[in-house]
Design a protein around this nucleic acid. Structure first.
Length: 561
RNA sequence: UGGGGUGUAGCCAAGUGGUUAAGGCACGGGGUUUUGAUCCCCGGACGCCCAGGUUCGAAUCCUGGCACCCCAGCCA
C-alpha cells in the first residue's frame, strides 16, 4: 500500500463508530451532540469536544446537535447561550438549526419519571440532604435504604404531583431512582433525579417548581434526539451505568450509548469553568474575553484563528489518557496558519532614534517591500524612508555579546528593504547614561537593501521613518500562569498567576499603512510576531494591537546560553 | 479495606502476536534566506510501568505487582 495524503488520525471512538456501522447497530446513522451547560463561556477544552462531535458527524455524513443542558436555573443565563452559539459558529461548525434545550423536554421528562414511579422504580424521599448523604454510605461502605424507600406507588405519585405544583419548599422532598443502595458504584445508590427548586429558569420562567438532574436528563435527551453516540469526558464513566439503567428501564424512542474520552489539559492555564469564573469575578483578568484567558472569545480576540484551533484539536488526538498538552503544540498550529495568511509589516515596539547623517535633510523615498516574502500573490507596498528613523532598542548593543549580529558601534547592518547603515556615534543621556540616539551613515548604493558589491551584513533590522510613522499601543501577552500545572500542588492555584502576563507598550511606532487596518485584522510585525488589531479598543486614531504569539526565536536561545 | 479508568521518547500519539516500534510538538545538528522567521535535510525508544509466564516469536496473550486519575452535589 502506498502512503497517501495526510489522513485524519484514527482514534478509539472512530473505531467504535466503524464497528457499529459495520454491524448496522445504528441503521447507518451517526448523530452526535455538543451539550454545554449555559453557565459560562466556552474554552479551548470545549473546542476539543466540539471538534470531535461536529467533526465525527461531518466525516460520517451524520448530524450534530447543539444542545444546551439547562436543568439548573440557579446557574444558567441567556447571556451564556448567545456567547456559546457565537463561539461554536466562529470555530466553523453549523448545527443546521438543531438548537436544542434539555428544558424543552421537561414535560416528557416528567412523564418518564412518572413512568418510573408506576413501575415501582422511583420514589419520593423525604429525608434531608444531610440524611441522604449519610445514608449513601462511603466509598468503602455500602449505603442504607431510606425509610421512605417503600412508599406505595399512589403515595409516590401524589407526592410527586404535588412537588410539581409547588406545595412543598425547596429540599423538602426529592425523587429518587430505586436501584441499589449497596452498589459499589455510588451513582447507582438510588440517585436523586428530581429536586424542588423554586427558581426562575431562563427559558421556562416560573412554570416549574421541580427540575430534573443531569443523570436523568442527559440520557433521555439523547434518546429523544435520536443521538447514536453520546460522547462525554472521563469523569462520567461511572455515570454510564446509570445512563444505561434509565434507558433500559424506560420506553424511549431510541437507545443511545455513552462513550468517554479524556478532557484537555493545557500547560500554563486552567480549564475549569469554576476557576475561569473566579478569575473574571475577582478581577484577575478584565473579562471572559481578556486575551490571556483560554476561552474561545479571548483567544479569538488575541488573534488566534479558528483553523489553528481545529488543527490543534486534530493533532492532540482523542484517547482516555490523562494528559497535559504543551503550549508549543497550540502555538505551532497557530504559527503554521498565521505564517501563510498574514501580511508582513514593520512596527517598532521600543523605539530608538537613528539619524542618518549623510542622508539629505529633506529627501524622502518610497521603497518597495513585499507583503509576504514567500507569496508574491500578496503583492508589494511602498515604504517611506527619510533621514530620521527608529529601530528596535533590542537591535542595538553598545558592547555586543558574541554572536550578536545586529547594530553596534562601527558595525554595519541592513535596514530591511532600505539601505545598509553603519553606526558611527552613540548619544547618551547625560544623567542616566541611557542610549538615546544613534548616528549612522548609509551606503546609497545599497538601496533596496541589496549588497552593492557582494559585501555581507549579518543582520537585517526592521525600522520605521520618524516623519511618517503612526503611534500605537501594543499589548504583549504571555502565559497566564507561571507554573505549568497550577491546579496541582499545595495551596491556592491563584498564587501562580503570572504577574507579567501582560505588558502594555504605549509608544510603539507603525508603518503608516497600518492606519487603514480594521479591528481583528492580523499582521506579522516582521521579526517580532503576529499581531491582531484589538476587537474592542481599536480605532484608526488610536491603534491598539494584541500580540497573538511571537515568532520562533532562536536568538533568544543563543542569548540564554 | 469499594468501584470505574489509564500507563509506548521531554509532551502528545499510532500500534490489536511476526519486517529496523508510525507521525506531530519540543530538543540538537546542517543547508537556503534582505525576518536569528519561513522552508529543506539529518538525529532520538536496543525499548513499550515493573516482575514472572505462554510462544519459534510479545508493546500486543496470561498471572501478580506498582503508579497515577475519577466517584460519597438535591452541580454538570
Amino acid at each position: 500500500m502506498i502512503a497517501s495524503e495526510t489522513t485524519t488520525p484514527t482514534n478509539f471512538i472512530r473505531k467504535i463508530i466503524d464497528e457499529d456501522l459495520a454491524q448496522h447497530k445504528t441503521k447507518g446513522r451517526v448523530h452526535t451532540r455538543f451539550p454545554p451547560e449555559p453557565n459560562g463561556y466556552l474554552h479551548i477544552g470545549h473546542a476539543k469536544s466540539i471538534c470531535l462531535n461536529f467533526g465525527l458527524a461531518s466525516e460520517y455524513g451524520g448530524k450534530c446537535n447543539l444542545r444546551f443542558d439547562d436543568t439548573n436555573p440557579d446557574k444558567e443565563e441567556k447571556e451564556y447561550v448567545e456567547a456559546i452559539k457565537q463561539d461554536v459558529s466562529w470555530l466553523g461548525y453549523d448545527w443546521q438549526g438543531r438548537e436544542c434545550y434539555s428544558s424543552d423536554y421537561f414535560e416528557q421528562l416528567y412523564d418518564y419519571a412518572a413512568d418510573l414511579i408506576k413501575q415501582g422504580k422511583a420514589y419520593v424521599d423525604s429525608m434531608s440532604a444531610d440524611e441522604i448523604r449519610e445514608y449513601r454510605g462511603s466509598l468503602t461502605q455500602s449505603g442504607q435504604d431510606s425509610p421512605y424507600r417503600d412508599r406505595s406507588v399512589d403515595e409516590n405519585m401524589d407526592l410527586f404531583e404535588r412537588m410539581r405544583k409547588g406545595e412543598f419548599k425547596d429540599g423538602e422532598h426529592v425523587l429518587r431512582a430505586r436501584i441499589d443502595m449497596a452498589s459499589a458504584n455510588i451513582s447507582l445508590r438510588d440517585p436523586v433525579i428530581y429536586r424542588i427548586k423554586k427558581a426562575s429558569h431562563h427559558r421556562t420562567g416560573d412554570e416549574w417548581n421541580i427540575y430534573p438532574l443531569y443523570d436523568f436528563t442527559h440520557c433521555l435527551s439523547d434518546a429523544i434526539e435520536h443521538i447514536t453516540h453520546s460522547i462525554c469526558t472521563l469523569e462520567f464513566e461511572d455515570n454510564r451505568a446509570l445512563y444505561d439503567w434509565v434507558i433500559d428501564n424506560l420506553d424511549t424512542p431510541s437507545t443511545p450509548h455513552q462513550y468517554e474520552f479524556a478532557r484537555l489539559n493545557l500547560d500554563y492555564t486552567v480549564l475549569s469553568k469554576r476557576k475561569l469564573i473566579e478569575l473574571v469575578t475577582e478581577g484577575h483578568v478584565s473579562g471572559w474575553d481578556d486575551p490571556r484567558m483560554p476561552t474561545l472569545s479571548a483567544i479569538r480576540r488575541r488573534g488566534y484563528t479558528a483553523k489553528a484551533i481545529r488543527d490543534f484539536c486534530e493533532r492532540i488526538g482523542v484517547t482516555k489518557n490523562d494528559t497535559r498538552i504543551d503550549m508549543s503544540v497550540l502555538e505551532n498550529s497557530l504559527r503554521e496558519d498565521l505564517d501563510k495568511q498574514t501580511p508582513r509589516v514593520m512596527a517598532v515596539l521600543r523605539p530608538l532614534r537613528v539619524v542618518i547623517d549623510n542622508y539629505p535633510d529633506d529627501m524622502e523615498e518610497q521603497l518597495e517591500a513585499a507583503n509576504h516574502p514567500n507569496d508574491p500573490n500578496m503583492g508589494n507596498r511602498k515604504l517611506d524612508f527619510a533621514k530620521v528613523i527608529y529601530i528596535e532598542r533590542d537591535d542595538f548593543m553598545e558592547e555586543p555579546v558574541k554572536k550578536f549580529f545586529r547594530l553596534s558601534p562601527g558595525k554595519e547592518v541592513r535596514l530591511r528593504y532600505a539601505y545598509f547603515i553603519t553606526c558611527n556615534e552613540v548619544i547618551k543621556d547625560a544623567d542616566s547614561g541611557d542610549v538615546i540616539e544613534l548616528h549612522c551613515s548609509y551606503d546609497p548604493d545599497s538601496r533596496g537593501g541589496n549588497s552593492p558589491d557582494g559585501r555581507k551584513v549579518k543582520g537585517t533590522l526592521h525600522w520605521v521613518s520618524e516623519r511618517h510613522a503612526i503611534k500605537a499601543e501594543v499589548r504583549l501577552y504571555d502565559r497566564l500562569f507561571s507554573k505549568a500545572n497550577p491546579d496541582k500542588g499545595d495551596g491556592d492555584w491563584k498564587q501562580f498567576l503570572n504577574p507579567e502576563s501582560v505588558e502594555i507598550l504605549t509608544d510603539c511606532l507603525l508603518e503608516p499603512g497600518l492606519r487603514h487596518a480594521k479591528a481583528e485584522d492580523r499582521f506579522q510585525f516582521e521579526r517580532l510576531g503576529y499581531f491582531c488589531a484589538d476587537k474592542k479598543d481599536w480605532s484608526s486614531d488610536k491603534p491598539v494591537f494584541n500580540r497573538t504569539v511571537t515568532l520562533r526565536d532562536s536568538w533568544k536561545k543563543i542569548k540564554a546560553s
